[in-house]
Every structure is written in structure tokens, then in C-alpha cells.
Design a protein around this nucleic acid. Structure first.
Lengths: 365, 365
DNA sequence: TTGTACGCGTTATCAG
DNA sequence: CTGATAACGCGTACAA
């Protein structure tokens, strides 16, 4: 099938071009183009010859050339920290579904947690003329971050593209970016209220890292729930951690070791991953969940209903966020003139998914 | 910072070009290009003017144009079924690490299990001139699949690119593709041998779907282990399932319901996901693992050490496979003339990760 | 219906 | 050091 073309020994093989196809078929380049795109009718015999030539030479169009001359496959880029994270993956999945449904190609890039890399990736996608660049996951809420992102947003906007922040700190109001977020604080509020309703009063919390926007929101939901029930807020019951399994294991060891936590009957954890680590170490230490200690997580990753006991946790609609991000970005571009009819800031609801990791506090305390 | 350019009301905003930058800076396009790429020295004052113009116009190079004129950022594409799958994600992660380390951009595309979509994606990546296209995960081992893949492999090869099959059925020997695989059958052999050594004789197995290459390999490892210990192979003890959690739940119900399985003391499952579903239903039915029944999984996804009890399972070096795929593909291209020094078929080892889900069979039987 | 010729945005070459 | 100009591969008016 695949005819060998002239490639001198050692010379890099090179893609067949439309010109070569035209020559082999004995037609003009334009005719080949027309056969490819179907933009205009071509006589049956010529079409046949062209198709054969394409087959013989194993010709494929050059996306870059095609895109240069106007007709491009639009792409949607999603930039995230790490594909391996279940919640990131869920968002990416949502992005892909929606992008595919709208006939766009979606590309995933990972930053591996490096802010420099993140900026480089966004820049790269801008050069690629991505129609939307979707930035996913938490970020340090620093001035530098804000100003750099604002730059990118404006730059993408100028190029007819759109920056979408997904579960991220929003930028100033005049920055041309779309924000898709979830109700972070109310999720935490519901979780802690649930623990309070079960009778818990000394509730440890691991909301997340300091200055990390998601962590801050979860902490304030925690405080607000306490306040609503007239329970005093004790800063000693807050442990800052990264969103990793290991951090949960570490926290569990502190919880077991320190007398300061002796009267703790429940833990509100700002991440399922952290909760898993916590549960693991607690169980190994002989603590039964929820008999000895109740736990509520955050995220509702698939694994939450797979662990034992099944984790009661705050459901975050990650997949839906991904889909929404694509929808808002693309609709805005399709609407053309009256873009103002498209939302720029959408907040999706969270809710508590009640499972088996919460019970009333035992009498020991 | 960002100056507004001439965009009539309603007209699509358009990216600034190198020509506009040159005009604004009062220099030639060539000079602008040199400032961008640093390919040749430029006098300080001109450079300064160019940089200011770039900043003012918020200019970014067009990747497509750059790639067309020779200098392109090489990209590595990874095509997988679903980002959400932990083992796929791990491979993608490996690919990204290695690609980034070698200064390449990596793109992830999902096929959502649709073979048509898969072919389309590979085709798309070929048009994008990806330097390597890495195909990941199992596939139906059908003639049609083989011939279409062979076509793609040759086509990519002709374009100076490389098809890499990662954990997939290899193609015919004369097909220019690189294969990175793991020792599927021996992993199963080790797993089942472990169960036999613990004293189990009636071992149910859920190797995977029929005609699915990974499933077939795992089944033959199972048979070989049985044979090695002189235990008779009973086809009734083989249940074909998809690699999903739900399939495991379903199988567990069959296991509980049918008297045919009454004497089963252990299960060898061809996928951790399936094992999780199985464990879940068994536990809910009051069966304790491993006291009442032992279970061994396959894949060693992160979750395997998070469930209770921790799952004994066959470790598959997914991340390493991803890294290896990139390495082999790119080294082959760098080697130029003597490509034959680069492996074309690499098989990575698997081993049993012993945890807590296996015990000696109870005396009841 | 078919072919010719130009433009897309960038880099490389070559002459100054 | 700098500037003009020819590729790069494709789509598409425009002319035939």
C-alpha cells in the first residue's frame, strides 16, 4: 500500500505534500484540495485518481498549514497540575466530553505543580491558538499570580480566545476571564453542620494549606457552622496540611500522640485524599471509624465510596465544572456581538454525600 | 499595557502579527524574528524598540506558522481511553515526565472507548506532526484493528514519526512500531502461585473480557500456575468480566448466589477495579476478607493500598512504561542512521505486591 | 468543472 | 548588524 518515496539514505523522511499528490494524479493542487475538503464538486475520474494518489503516497494534510490558511480545527486546552489527581481527572473528563460534543479537539497539559510551568503552558496554548484555555485547580492567591494571569487573560482575549478559571481564585472584575467555581464554603458549612447535628462539639479540621483559596473557604465554612450552633472556635483544632495522602497520615499521628486532641470526636477534612491517609493510620492504631471517631471529607472522589467505611464527604461537581467551562467559553465566541448574554461567573452547587463515616460521639468523652 | 488595536465593532479580534510589530518598531520583520528567537545578535536600541512593540501589541508567535517554516516545538501525543482510569493516568504521567525532561510538549487525547474515535485521534496527531504517538491500554485483538494500526504505523513512520504501543497487542514484525509492554502472564502466574502456596485449591478467576489481550494473558498465567502445582483447571471457575467496578459487584453476587462456587476460597481478579467492587459486595454480605475468602488483584493502582484490607495485587509499572515509550521513540529519532541500536520491543517486569487480602483458607471447606 | 496565483505568519538565506 | 525576499503547505478567490 505505502509506496516508498525518494528518500536518500540517512535523509530524514519527509511528509508527502499536496503538490506531490497533484503531480502523481496529474491534476492541480486545487483539485486535490477540493477532494480533501469536499468544498467543491470534482469529476468522478479525477477524484478517483486523486484518492489513489493520496493512498499511494500515504498523504496526510498538514494541520499547521491548513490552520495558517484559515481553516483550523479549533482546540480547547486544559491546564492542570497532575493528571493523576482524581478531581483534576474528572474535570478534564468533563472538558473533553463537552469539547468533543462540540466538534473541538481538547488537549491536556500538566504543570506538575510548578507555577512557572503553568505560565509556560498557558503561553504555549496561546501560541497554538487554542480557542479556550481552561485552568484548573487551586493556586496560591498571590499578587504575582493575579497580575500574570490578568496579562494572559487580556492577551487571550485579544486573540479571540478565552481564559477560564475552574475552581480558582477569580481575578479583578475588569479582567476578561470566565470563572467556573463551586460553592466551596457552603459545602464545608454543610459538612460541619452534619457533624454538629450528630452531637460532636470538639471537631478537628484539616482544611488545607494556608493561603490556598480552597483551604481558606473550607475553613470559613467550618467557622460559620460552629458559630451557627454557638460552639466556640478553637484555633488549636485547625491543622494546616497539603492536599496529600501523606499529610493525612502525618496529621493522624499528631492526633494520636498529642493530649491536646484527646477530646476530639470528629474530623472535618478538606480533601478526601487527606481523609484516606488519616483513616488508614487511625485504623492501624486500633481506632474504629465511626465508632471512635467520625470523619467527613471533601471532593467526593470515586474512591470515597470504595474505602471502608464509605466516606461521608462533600460532593463537588468536577465533571460538570469541566463541561460548563467549555460551554461558556465557546458559547461566548459563537454569540459574537452580544457576548453579554453569556455568563462570566458561574458557581455550581455542592452538597453533602452522607455515607458511613459519621456517627454520634461515643460516651467515653 | 495592552493597547487596543483596530477592531471594528463586532469584528472578530485578530492576533497581532510579526509584520505589525515590525512596523510599530520601525524595523524589518527579520529583526523582530531575531529578537524573538535569539538566533542572531541585534543592536540594543533596536531590540529595546522591538520588545516594547511586542509588549504594546501583546504579540505572540503563531506556532503554526513557525512550525510551517521549519522550527517547531516537537510534540508527543498520548492517546488513551479515559483519563479517569488510574492506570491510564499513571502512564500519561510517565509520558509527560519524560517528554518534559526532553523538552517536548505532550498532549493527551481521550477516545472514550470508541475505536473509531481512537483512529480519528491517531490520525489527528499524525496531521499535527507529533513526533511520537503513544497508544495506551488494551484493545480488542481483531484483524481490523491490526490492519488499521499497521497502516497508521507505516504512515507515521513515513512522516518521521513513531507509533508506540503501550500495553497493547503487538502488530506483525514488519510493522514500524515500538512496543512497550509488561510481563502480563508472569504477573498472573505469581499471583495465583501465591494463592496456591497459601493452601487454596478452588480459585475463582475474573481475568477480564474475552478476546481482550490482557485478559487472555492473565488467564493463561492462572492456568500455568495451576498446572505447575498439579491442580486441575476447571473452566467453571472462570468468569469473564469487563474491567469495571460494577462488573466486580455483579460477579460477587453470582459468587454468593450459586452453589457451584460454594467451595471457592480465593479469587484471582484481573483488575484492581473489579476487585474493589467484588470486595465491597462481599463485605456487605458479611464475608470477611481474607478470613472467609482471599483476593488478589492486578494493576496495583494507588487505591489498592487504601482499601481495607489492603489489596494484595500484581504491580504493573505503568509510569515507567510511559517514560520508556517516550524514551524509545525519541532516541530512535535522534540516533538517525543507526536506529537499529534502539529497542523496538521492551517488556517491563511485574511483581506481586503482598498486602493483607490473602490468608490460608479457613477449615470450613 | 478545472487550473493559476496569492495570502496566511514565520524563519532562513543572502545581499548589503 | 540589518533588510528584502524566498520558502513552508494549504485554501480559495479568480479566471478560464
Amino acid at each position: 500500500m505505502v509506496a516508498k518515496r525518494e528518500t536518500g539514505p540517512g535523509s530524514e523522511p519527509t511528509q508527502a505534500t499536496i503538490r506531490e499528490v497533484a503531480a502523481r494524479a496529474g491534476v492541480s493542487m486545487a483539485t486535490v484540495s477540493r477532494v480533501m475538503t469536499g468544498s467543491q464538486p470534482v469529476s468522478p475520474d479525477r477524484r478517483e485518481r486523486v484518492l489513489r494518489a493520496i493512498d499511494d503516497l500515504d498523504y496526510v494534510v498538514n494541520t499547521h498549514a491548513r490552520s495558517l490558511s484559515g481553516a483550523a480545527i479549533e482546540t480547547v486546552a486544559i491546564v492542570l497540575e497532575d493528571i493523576t489527581g482524581p478531581s483534576f481527572a474528572a474535570m478534564a473528563h468533563g472538558v473533553e466530553q463537552e469539547a468533543a460534543a462540540r466538534g473541538r479537539l481538547s488537549l491536556v497539559c500538566a504543570t506538575h505543580g510548578d507555577p512557572e510551568q503553568e505560565l509556560r503552558m498557558v503561553d504555549l496554548m496561546r501560541r497554538q491558538h487554542a480557542k479556550a484555555v481552561i485552568l484548573v485547580g487551586g493556586a496560591d492567591d498571590l499578587d504575582e499570580y493575579r497580575s500574570r494571569m490578568a496579562r494572559f487573560a487580556r492577551s487571550l482575549d485579544a486573540a479571540g480566545s478565552r481564559l477560564v478559571l475552574c475552581g480558582r481564585p477569580p481575578l479583578e472584575a475588569d479582567v476578561p476571564a470566565t470563572v467556573v467555581d463551586y460553592d466551596n464554603e457552603n459545602g464545608a458549612f454543610a459538612a460541619v453542620s452534619h457533624l454538629l447535628a450528630a452531637g460532636h462539639r470538639r471537631i478537628l479540621t484539616l482544611p488545607g494549606a494556608e493561603n490556598f483559596t480552597t483551604g481558606e473557604g473550607r475553613l470559613s465554612g467550618y467557622r460559620r457552622a460552629l458559630e451557627a450552633q454557638g460552639v466556640a472556635y478553637d484555633p488549636k483544632l485547625v491543622i494546616r496540611t497539603a492536599y496529600t495522602r501523606g499529610a493525612g497520615e502525618q496529621a493522624a499521628r499528631e492526633l494520636l500522640a498529642s493530649t491536646a486532641y484527646a477530646d476530639v470526636t470528629a474530623v472535618f477534612v478538606g480533601s478526601d485524599q487527606v481523609a484516606f491517609g488519616l483513616m488508614d493510620v487511625l485504623r492501624d492504631a486500633g481506632r474504629q471509624i465511626p465508632r471512635d471517631i467520625s470523619i467527613v471529607g471533601y471532593d467526593d472522589v470515586p474512591q470515597a465510596k470504595a474505602v471502608f467505611p464509605k466516606l461521608t464527604t462533600v460532593h463537588v461537581p468536577y465533571e460538570q465544572m469541566g463541561r460548563t467551562a467549555v460551554r461558556l467559553a465557546l458559547e461566548r465566541q459563537e454569540h459574537g456581538a452580544n457576548k453579554h448574554s453569556v455568563e462570566e461567573h458561574m458557581i455550581l452547587g455542592t452538597h453533602l454525600e452522607v455515607r458511613d463515616s459519621v456517627a454520634a460521639p461515643s460516651r467515653r468523652h
